[in-house]
Each structure stands twice: as C-alpha cells, then as structure tokens.
C-alpha cells in the first residue's frame, strides 16, 4: 500500500497521473489537492509516502509550497511535476528539497520510476539534467535512466546494442519503421545518449544486451 498525494490545479493532469499510478500499484491510496491550501490540509490530515507537486498554480506557487512541505514533513519525498522546462526550474526545486523534477510531457513515462526512486530515499534526475546538477549540487547522483524505459523501448535498446538497424528491428518486432524510429529517439532523449555506440556501451555496462 502506497499513499500518493497529487497537488495540481488541473483535473485532467491529476486524473492522468492517478491512472498511471493505478496501472502500476495494486494497493494504492491517492489524495488530491488543487491548490496550496488543500495541499497543506491533506498534509496535516494524513501521512503520505510521496507527493507529486505542480509548480504553476493559482495563489501561492508550487515552489513556495515545496518549502513549506519540506518544513512540515522533511522526510516525505516530493516530486515536482511541472509544465515548465527543467533547465530553469529543476535546480531550484532540488535546492528546496525536491527528490525529482519531471516535465509533464514525460511524466507518464517517468513518474512511476521516479516515485520508486524517491520513496527509496534517492533522487530522480533525468539524463539531461545530470551534468548540470552534478556541477551545482555536487556528488552523489546515481543514474539509471533505463529504469524509465517501457518494455518495447528496452527491447529496442537491446537490439540497437546488438547492432541491428531500425529496419531490421521493425521487421523483427512487426512494427512500422516510424514507430521504431520514435522509440529510438525516445531512448536517446531519456538516457541522454545520442549515438548507437553510446547506447551499446551503456547496454553492455548494465548487462542489458544478452
């Protein structure tokens, strides 16, 4: 049983996130808040294992609520889920005590992996931010970007690592080349690895290639 508090002023986003979590966890308690006041009420009323927090909300913005949450419950991990680009907001969020920063565009893919990592006491950092954060926050950042890959994406990674072309992969998986191409570009983006050589090296290092 995990308890998730979703703080977002958009119902459609809350619903999406709720369903993503419902797909992954059979025992789940979801709390919802659509502004800072409700969030703080929920915080006071219940214990939460993880909090998903939007930045852009009417009234007090998410970053202010983040500070308040960390003051009230310093041990409860908070994932910031925002429509804002992470380049400008991620570092700030981490400085205020967030355990991860997700763009809403990639939230569906990454939020569960990020939540698991955060609940385990770690910090979830996308490949894109890793370098910047390493410089800013220093030290202990463990990256395991493949954790957020879907099964098909992982399959494509393994096949790329074996030296298959997109055409070969598409034929083997009976998918269109376009779909495989999309998978391939998602891989690069999620893992911050652009070339096939880099992807192959990563797969070998993490023993994903067999």
């Amino acid at each position: 049983m995990i308890r998730v508090l979703i703080v977002d002023d958009h119902e459609i986003v809350r619903r999406g996130l709720k369903e993503v979590f419902a797909d992954e966890f059979s025992e789940l308690k979801i709390g919802e808040a659509k502004n800072s006041r409700e969030a703080l009420e929920q915080m006071a009323a219940h214990e939460w294992d993880i909090i998903l927090l939007d930045i852009n909300m009417p009234g007090r913005n998410g970053l202010e609520i983040l500070s308040e949450i960390k003051r009230l419950r310093s041990h409860t991990p908070v994932l910031v889920v925002s429509a804002y680009p992470e380049e400008e907001f991620a570092v700030r969020s981490f400085k205020l005590g967030a355990s991860g920063y997700l763009n809403k565009n990639s939230a569906a893919d990454e939020v569960v992996a990020a939540a698991r990592k955060a609940m385990a006491g770690g910090k979830y950092v996308t490949a894109m931010l890793a370098e910047k954060l390493a410089a800013t926050l220093g030290g202990d950042i463990q990256l395991a970007p493949h954790e957020s890959l879907s099964s098909r994406e992982l399959q494509v990674l393994q096949m790329v690592a074996k030296g298959r072309t997109i055409k070969e992969i598409a034929a083997e998986l009976a998918l269109s080349e376009k779909t495989v191409g999309t998978y391939r570009s998602r891989l690069s983006k999620k893992m911050g690895l652009a070339t096939n050589v880099e992807l192959t090296r990563y797969a070998l290092q993490h023993r994903l290639a067999d």
Partner: peptide, 24 residues
C-alpha cells in the same frame, strides 16, 4: 498554457497509458 497545455498533457498521459497497455 493552462488550458490547452494541460489538456494536451492529460491527452498524452492517456495515450502513453494506452501504448503501454497495448505493449503488454
């Protein structure tokens, strides 16, 4: 940003969920 953007975000989440389910 708030309206269109958030709705698109919701739409994308739905699509990704559907995608994963189909993958399975």
């Amino acid at each position: 940003h708030d309206d269109l953007g958030q709705k698109l975000t919701g739409l994308k989440m739905d699509l990704r969920r559907a995608e994963r389910k189909v993958e399975g």
